[in-house]
Design a protein around this nucleic acid. Structure first.
Lengths: 211, 211
DNA sequence: AATTGTGAATTGATTCACAGCT
DNA sequence: AGCTGTGAATCAATTCACAATT
């Protein structure tokens, strides 16, 4: 019986926080800081120092006791853990109100994603000025495009009624991760991950906290 | 020693799911359904039936054993638990790329929120066609407006550098809940709730799951 | 002296299993 | 017979406390 090599199962919450640490580290690096303690970084990221250390412990030891973490090394190690070593191509489906804004959102590019094409069911739709991609195609072309370009990620900003059908096409064409802005529950097979951002639910949820 | 009256402390995760149940119930109601079992509603909401029942149990019993939940009653009870009994005024700060899209987002209105005004630091900024509010003011006027109109909620879509300063003004003027789209950690006093939606982090987080 | 890395303790959320209604 | 409501059990995440290291 062989020893299991290490499942490297990092909890989803941790993964999410890693992106946030990453951004803080970038800022530190820009400011010429080269070592940071868990206390300082945790404060910047809005978490407790122990949590930061536990999170990092999931995939290695990068700290120097008595000293702290080398900013550069830590940033690149997190990048690696997240699989963000190279530019990642993404498509955008749905160029309505929200989709148009997303097509121009600089934050994606800054974190290493490239929107390689946008799709819409309406052939009269146009990309807004300042969109980060030039390519606007009809949703009919989704499957062909995805297979040709080996895209693994999609951003979905279509009306809720249309969402599941699009998702089925995406999944059938090899997409493995979907960032979903339609307020619907999507069914996907194992091996495909969906992150849903439900804007109205976020606001509704907040309204509970005003007394 | 008196008995504690009941803290009615509903966990944040539950609150979030309530909004989702709410939407499913609305759809059921539109389809003329008047009773629904926890199994059916849970499926629609993408959770396990026990979880749905536990969630509801936090604030009352609405079900009829052997039968299910009356759709109408349940919807209005959840609405009440969330504090969504009347139209809730909200302001939008930041009318850039993302802010413009949010100013036209129909989903907020549909769930009972009204964007009563938008603010921007740039006096040349214009509201996009189709914006759900007519009022665009300079951020200088934030404090006065908030106090005059007793607004408790704000949507924040400004550049990260500007975010904390705006938040300080919002809090000082009585805002108790903030939906934040700036990729920054915001400091707020107790009694103020922040929900952050970090679009780039959502995408980055997803990229871990493509193998 | 300072700060990491981590087993143990705690807290919190989810799921199970079944008693209790209708 | 069917389905809710819930205490008990399980599972997961967070925090504590401290030994280990530079």
């Amino acid at each position: 019986m062989a020893v299991v090599p290490a499942p490297a199962e990092i909890p989803r919450r941790t993964i999410y926080r890693l992106s946030i640490y990453q951004r803080c580290l970038q800022r530190l690096r820009d400011n010429g800081v080269d070592t940071v303690s868990s206390a300082t970084l945790a404060k910047a990221a809005g978490v407790k120092p122990t949590q930061l250390r536990k999170d990092l412990a999931h995939f290695g030891h990068f700290g120097v006791r008595g000293r702290g973490y080398p900013v550069d090394l830590l940033a690149s190690s997190i990048g690696e853990a997240l699989g963000r070593t190279r530019l990642q191509p993404v498509i955008l489906v749905g160029v309505g109100n929200l989709g148009s804004a997303l097509s121009r959102y600089q934050g994606f590019e800054k974190e290493g994603f490239e929107i390689v094409a946008a799709f819409d069911a309406d052939p009269h739709r146009q990309l807004p000025a300042g969109a980060l991609t030039r390519h606007l195609l009809h949703t009919d072309q989704l499957a062909t495009f995805l297979v040709d370009h080996e895209v693994r990620m999609a951003i979905l900003a279509v009306p809720p009624e249309a969402a599941q059908a699009i998702v089925n096409t995406l999944v059938a064409s090899g997409v493995q991760a979907i960032l979903n802005f339609s307020p619907t529950v999507l069914a996907v097979p194992d091996g495909v991950t969906v992150n849903s951002v439900d804007l109205a639910a976020e606001l509704e949820n907040l309204s509970y906290f005003i007394r």
